[in-house]
Design a protein around this nucleic acid. Structure first.
Lengths: 216, 216
DNA sequence: AAATCAATACCGAACGTTCGTTCGACAATA
DNA sequence: TATTGTCGAACGAACGTTCGGTATTGATTT
């Protein structure tokens, strides 16, 4: 991400044959296939077929498999960074900040599902993956800080270790990528009936108040 | 693979050179490598090297990459099935059953980490994977039933959809595989300071009572 | 006790396939 | 004519797997 020159919004060919596919469109298609088959198990032939192109034509539009992964996970990381940028502009009590970040992060995850899914599945096998994982760790760290602040302010329970709580909370949020499919009929056959806002509400409620029936 | 005659429990050589590696030992090594590099990204050469064997010798002891995955995820599924078998022998109120299954499932996950991790990462690309996913779905279904029962008994809150709650709860538990490493210094550089019982306690507490500071 | 045998552990080399990627040529447009 | 989209064919590398042969052992036979 040192040079961000390649990804304007819609790179349109100014001469020659009109471009049928923008870079972003292709990344969207690619991410979807990665999401279904897994990155390693997806071949360039798979990606080309899903884009309606031959392998060689596909290579005319993209620079390679690893760069495609890079573009996709960068989309997720940019969106997640955005959550904390919004948050920095607001002033609120620690627990309310935590709740809002929890809510917004969940919303971003649902909105950018394929990209976030790819990000969460990285194993750090290549340099591209390791760079992305480093950016992801910085997101985690900012979240852990929010938990710490809320705890220092006495607004959340203090009998559980903050780092552990942070991991469990965002583990719950991130687990959405395992079954949520934006379309009503999931391709993996899982399927669900939850609307986005219902999911976001359940996440925040469960995280803060737990599952027990309230006394009163 | 049409003939599955080769795999008894502990096939011990009755003659000739003593076997230095049992099937289970090899599966343990293999699962660890799968866990670190990811199944697809792991080559048979990687597995042989981790076992201290050449590729061809390694093939003398195992039947192939896919069968290794099968053995590994079966270990996880057997352990998870065991949790529900124990549970069936006990009689208790629904919410206590749910709490104990939550606790035992977390314990099993920590104890059988590499195997459960592999199970959770399956994408269903091959027949072996699809069979394992089907067994996994039956585990999920039994868990969902427990949530339903506790809700019907009025012991957990009824304002959240049971299927959604089930998924979020076990999403939180399953997310442990993303960072937990049994050894103090994780190979992925994550590292943590939590003991197993502390983690189990936090999971159950967070799930049932939530993060909010208790009033009183 | 020595020789023999069957079974197993082990290895280097190679197989056929699939992978990501490149290349040269042709078609279409400005 | 310059530029871009498209394509078939091929590249070297890496993959999972197989094979022929050798080394080492325990049991059996002499």
């Amino acid at each position: 991400m040192s040079k961000g020159a390649e990804a304007g919004a819609g790179v349109v060919a100014r001469r020659g044959r009109p471009a049928r596919y923008s870079q972003d469109d292709l990344v969207a298609v690619v991410a979807q296939v990665f999401l279904e088959r897994g990155y390693d198990a997806t071949s360039m032939a798979d990606l080309a077929r899903a884009s309606g192109l031959t392998k060689s034509t596909f290579y005319h539009h993209v620079s390679g498999k690893e760069q495609l992964l890079r573009l996709a996970v960068s989309r997720a990381l940019d969106a997640l960074d955005g959550v904390f940028e919004e948050e920095a502009r607001l002033d609120d009590s620690p627990v309310h900040r935590l709740e809002r970040v929890l809510r917004r992060t969940t919303e971003v995850l649902l909105a950018e599902l394929p990209y976030v899914t790819l990000l969460l599945r990285l194993r750090g096998n290549t340099e591209v993956e390791r760079e992305a994982l480093e950016r992801r760790r910085s997101v985690d760290a900012r979240l852990a800080q929010l938990v710490q602040d809320a705890r220092a302010a006495g607004q959340i329970r203090s009998d559980l270790e903050p780092r552990l709580v942070t991991r469990l909370l965002f583990g719950m949020v991130n687990s959405l990528v395992e079954w949520y499919r934006p379309d009503g009929s999931g391709a993996s056959g899982v399927g669900h009936g939850s609307r986005d806002d219902e999911i976001v509400h359940a996440v925040v409620e469960l995280a803060l108040d737990g599952l027990h029936a309230r006394r009163g």
